[in-house]
């Protein structure tokens, strides 16, 4: 029998989308640059106003020093090599706590999300533990693990654990049953289903969970370092308080903001690479 062949006709008509995506990606890069400068307008403007008001004496320098004074303090700390040590040790604590909390949360979240039995067995306990204000752990951790690094990293790990655990579990539970069925039609094993369907489908929400976890990691590192440390940005904060140096306090706060933002941006960049397949509103908005 002789059938008309529709594919040929469809081909020529549908070549356009592929070409369009190429020019779209160019537009997206331009759009991103515009976004960057927009984000700088407000902070830079505030700094200028703050500096001006300090110069004409509206803010008392012993309570709120001028940005230039804070910059000078940062510069001195940098030259003495002190700042690098503080930043280094704080980064190390956040990183290690994030790694330990994140890995544990990933394993347990995947388990409770995928297996109903594991969920019924473990999740009630985790939900109860989640509701303990994490600072309440501090005395216990210090008692158990001492005042050195271990208790600090444990506290950060606890902070990172819960948001990662919760979002991963919920993400896995919300994976489209219809996609899972496609895997079942092809007789996937449990491991294949997890690796080829559940994991990639959960990736977008998992990355959000990691970002939340990292944010809490930065929060908890301050708590841990305020509690008792001889180095670190949190120590610098307390040091500024005891020596009556508002410039040091504000400098540490700024450093926390910068470090937190930088690490989050890094995580977002990795995440965007991994989920570039997503067909979402925000991606669409970037393209147009």
């Amino acid at each position: 029998m002789n059938y008309p062949s529709p594919p040929k006709r469809l081909n020529s008509a549908t070549l356009a989308p592929v070409q369009r995506t190429r020019s779209q990606s160019r537009r997206r890069r331009l759009g991103l640059r515009g976004h960057w400068t927009l984000g700088f307008i407000l902070p830079v403007g505030l700094l200028v106003v703050w500096e001006l008001l300090s110069r004409i004496g509206v803010f008392p320098p012993n309570l709120l020093p001028a940005p230039s004074a804070i910059a000078l303090t940062l510069w001195t700390l940098t030259l003495s090599g002190e700042l690098l040590i503080h930043i280094g040790i704080t980064l190390y604590r956040v990183f290690l706590g994030f790694l330990i909390g994140g890995v544990l949360a990933t394993i347990l979240g995947a388990l409770t999300g995928y297996s109903r039995v594991a969920n019924q067995l473990l999740d009630p306990l985790f939900q109860a533990l989640r509701n303990i204000p994490s600072l309440a752990w501090v005395p216990l951790f210090i008692l158990w693990l001492g005042i050195a690094e271990t208790s600090k990293i444990a506290l950060i790990a606890v902070g990172v654990f819960f948001p990662v655990y919760l979002t991963l579990m919920a993400g896995i539970q919300q994976v489209d049953r219809k996609l899972v069925e496609v895997g079942r039609v092809y007789r996937f094993s449990q491991a294949q289903l997890i690796w080829r369907v559940f994991l990639p489908a959960t990736l977008p929400s998992y990355i959000v969970g990691l970002r939340n976890g990292l944010g809490l990691g930065w929060m908890f590192v301050v708590a841990a370092e305020i509690m008792g440390a001889s180095r670190g940005l949190g120590f610098l904060l307390i040091d500024g308080q005891t020596t009556g140096r508002p410039d040091i306090i504000i400098a540490s706060i700024l450093l926390f903001a910068i470090m937190g933002k930088l690490t989050d941006t890094g995580l977002v960049a990795i995440g965007r690479r991994l989920v570039s397949w997503q067909d979402s509103y925000s991606l669409q908005a970037q393209k147009n």
Binding site: K178, E181, V182, V185, R196, A201, L203, V275, W277
Partner: peptide, 29 residues
């Protein structure tokens, strides 16, 4: 008792894995 290897299924919706290219979606099974 389970999906049979000789059977192919086409659903009402395409049910493509959104993270795979067309080629890899075809390779999926």
């Amino acid at each position: 008792a389970n999906p049979h290897p000789e059977v192919g299924m086409i659903f009402q919706e395409p049910r493509l894995m959104p993270w795979l290219t067309v080629k890899d979606n075809v390779r999926f099974g």
